[in-house]
Design a protein around this nucleic acid. Structure first.
Length: 645
RNA sequence: GCUGGUGUGGCGCAGCGGUAGCGCAAUUGAUUCGUAAUCAAUAGGCCAGGGGUUCAAAUCCCCUCACCAGCUCCA
């Protein structure tokens, strides 16, 4: 007998060799029905796993992330089985569970059509109905290779051949279908209930664009139909917040075919929000000791050759002129660093001058690949709250902390602190040609950064291979409505460009020293941040950010003059106001203002006119009733000044 | 850049070989009205652009451009 400690802390004696599912059955049949996988001594295991010694056991259900993963992973096998039944020539690549469901990659002569997707889904339903038991078996590496080669599964063979020679390789079989897989898996195909194939996409084998493009099918599944319906509704709701749709509907931005891809036009409302953000950032930077620069939008290739951008990012730059024919070529700037470095180098610096904090509201140009553009998130021209801190090694830590503090202040004020995650982006020592080659300096800079991050106590995730070519980064990540993560803000430690630009300061002992450089943004790229704010607030911005803060709605034209008067008084207080003088009923005017997501509507009729009042209607709370105008003016100006959320 | 999908009046869509339609918005007129849509009339489109097939193309084929999702990339 062995002792098994359960989740609630209780201890249960079981026979040696009891499987996880048997253990679950001994607890309750309900739990056994819901069981998707097990967790033994904190490691996720299959339901078929045998308990051979004293251990802790937790039964994972669909409510546990790992349980859900097992459920979705099994569904991906059902997908693969259905595809093999309908298209026996399809070759299997990989089919993992992901955060939002699962996918499977196939190599098939002709890409799938959406109609075929329906057929595949139907076949999956059949497989579920057949309730095929899922069996696990293991083979030696050689046996496994023989097995998949006989089946003609060349992608699987490639995967197996890279495993160590003594590896024991597991397979899962359901009916006529067998797949190489580490598991865990459910016990039979009938455990899967509601399935939906979501979309089709191309994906390179092993994520490398040099490899063949495979056909990827994404899907999701749930133990109950109602859960699937709920999930689909949620996806649809999220799409309604899509900045790319909402931003256009609300007249924030537009695109135009003759202007070109990745070149959005900010319309009056979008430009107003941008200006508000920009003033906010610039004022705050000034308070925190930054000086401003304004540097050229282009430079000779010579500059980028010094920085290394010409070598690393030539393809991503808009080059003006022909390198073959012209004696010199210019390029639109893809970043501001070398320009600010030139300003730094314009004089000799004492250690007493440092740190130098330079900021610029900087328009940049990057020739993103044609398939990359997305609304305001990935564009070819954008404006960034760029800046560089030149510091002595002793100052590095404090300056880094200061940069993070500024960022967190921005995130708090915008009300998005809880919507972001922090990523510590490191270099990839396996891929040296992507980076400045100095292993020692990399490890040193990363160690310094890690120390600072740990000291602040930010909950960060490490990401290998995400560093800039000149140094490690702290990236602030935001997930868009489609669940895709983008970097909005970044702080980088640069140990190498000071060398390339021969930047220096004179220390206490009258010796020339290399400074450290921190590349940082306050609010990131304005366009991207705007996109994020649209999605966060579903277009209903906090009052201080709203392009139109108040709409005055006269009930009939008799009150137009009073309405204008009210509007002008508010304008003189710095409030952004419009008056709706159209000959429409009040309900209609309210409806339109509400759809435009304007924070306050002021209804004015005879009663208000007589009493110097306004009937306030809040976008959030509806009719607030009549209020003295002065009181409303005080209320809204305070709300704006405090940047209330 | 790659895979797939989409492109029809300002917006949302229908039409898928036989003279371009609906809803909303817009404009004009009437209505002077108290918290999410007043009534009526009118106007608006070389069906993304170019080429081809056909007696005939929004509709079929080819190319280009743009938009969407995914992959790859992202200083």
């Amino acid at each position: 007998m062995i002792k098994v400690t359960l989740k609630d802390g209780s201890c249960k004696e079981m026979k040696k060799g009891t499987t996880v599912i048997e253990a679950a059955e001994s607890i309750s049949m309900g739990l056994a029905r819901a069981a998707m996988a097990g967790e033994v001594n904190r490691k996720t295991v299959d339901l078929r796993y045998q308990l051979n010694e004293d251990c802790s056991l937790n039964i994972l259900t669909f409510d546990d992330p790992e349980g859900r993963m097992a459920y979705w992973h099994t569904t991906s096998h059902i997908l693969a089985q259905a595809v093999k039944r309908l298209y026996p020539n399809a070759k299997l690549a990989i089919g993992p569970a992901i955060e939002t469901g699962f996918y499977y990659d196939f190599d098939i002569e002709k890409p799938f059509t959406p109609e075929q997707l329906e057929d595949i889904e139907k076949e999956m339903q059949k497989i579920i109905k057949e309730d095929l038991p899922i069996e696990r078996f293991a083979l030696s590496r050689d046996e496994a290779l023989k097995f998949v080669n006989e089946a003609g599964e060349t992608y699987k063979a490639e995967l197996i051949s890279e495993l160590p020679e003594d590896a024991e390789i597991s397979f899962y079989r359901q009916g006529e279908f067998t797949d190489l897989c580490a598991g865990p898996h459910l016990l039979s195909t009938g455990k899967v209930k509601a399935v939906k194939l979501i979309n089709l996409a191309g994906a390179y084998w092993r994520g490398d664009e040099k490899n063949k493009m495979l056909q990827r099918i994404y899907g999701v599944s749930f133990p109950k139909k109602s859960m699937l319906d709920e999930h689909i509704t949620k996806l649809e709701e999220a799409k309604k917040r899509d900045h790319n749709k909402l931003g256009r509907e609300l007249g924030i931005f537009m695109t135009s075919e003759p202007i070109g891809q990745g070149l959005p036009l900010l319309m009056p409302k979008g430009a107003k929000i941008m200006q508000i953000l920009q003033r906010f950032v610039e004022d705050e930077e000034e308070k925190r000791g930054y000086v401003r620069t304004m540097t050229p939008y282009m430079a000779k290739s010579d500059l980028y050759k010094i920085s290394g951008h010409w070598q690393h990012y030539r393809d991503g730059m808009f080059v003006l002129g022909d390198e073959e024919k012209d004696s010199e070529v210019l390029a639109l700037r893809p970043m501001t660093c070398p320009f600010q470095f030139m300003i730094y180098n314009s004089k000799l610096h004492s250690y007493r001058d440092l740190p130098v904090r330079m900021a610029e509201t900087s328009t940049l140009f990057r020739n993103e690949a044609s398939g990359e553009m997305h609304g305001l998130i990935r564009v070819r021209q954008f404006t960034i709250s760029e800046g560089h801190i030149i510091a002595t090694p002793e100052q590095l830590e404090d300056e880094f902390l200061g940069a993070v503090d500024l960022i967190n202040y921005m995130l708090d004020t915008l009300g998005i602190r809880d919507d972001v995650t922090y990523r510590f982006s490191k270099w990839d020592p396996e891929n040296k040609e992507k980076y400045i080659d100095n292993s020692e300096a990399w490890e040193d800079a990363q160690a310094k950064m890690k120390k600072i991050l740990d000291q602040i106590g930010l909950p960060y995730e490490e990401a290998v291979g995400e560093a800039a070519f000149y140094g490690p980064k702290l990236d602030i990540q935001f997930k868009n409505v489609h669940g895709k993560e983008d970097t909005i803000i970044t702080v980088q430690i640069d140990f190498s460009l000071a060398e390339r630009f021969d930047m220096a300061y004179i220390d206490r002992n009258n010796e020339k020293k290399r400074p450290y450089i921190i590349h940082r943004t306050s609010i990131g790229c304005y366009e991207r941040t705007l996109a994020m704010l649209i999605e966060k607030y579903a277009g209903a911005f906090p009052t201080w950010l709203s392009p139109v803060q108040v709409k005055v709605l006269p009930i009939i034209d008799k009150q137009n003059e009073y309405a204008e008067n009210i509007a002008n008084q508010l304008r003189s207080l710095g409030v952004r106001v419009e008056v709706d003088k159209r000959n429409e009923k009040i309900g209609y005017k309210i409806r339109e203002a509400q759809l435009e997501k304007i924070p306050y509507m002021l209804v004015v009729g005879d009663k208000e006119m007589q009493n110097e009042q306004v009937a306030v209607r809040s976008r959030k709370e509806g009719d607030l009733g009549p209020m003295d105008f002065d009181k409303f003016a005080k209320m809204i100006t305070e709300e704006i000044a405090s940047r209330a959320k």
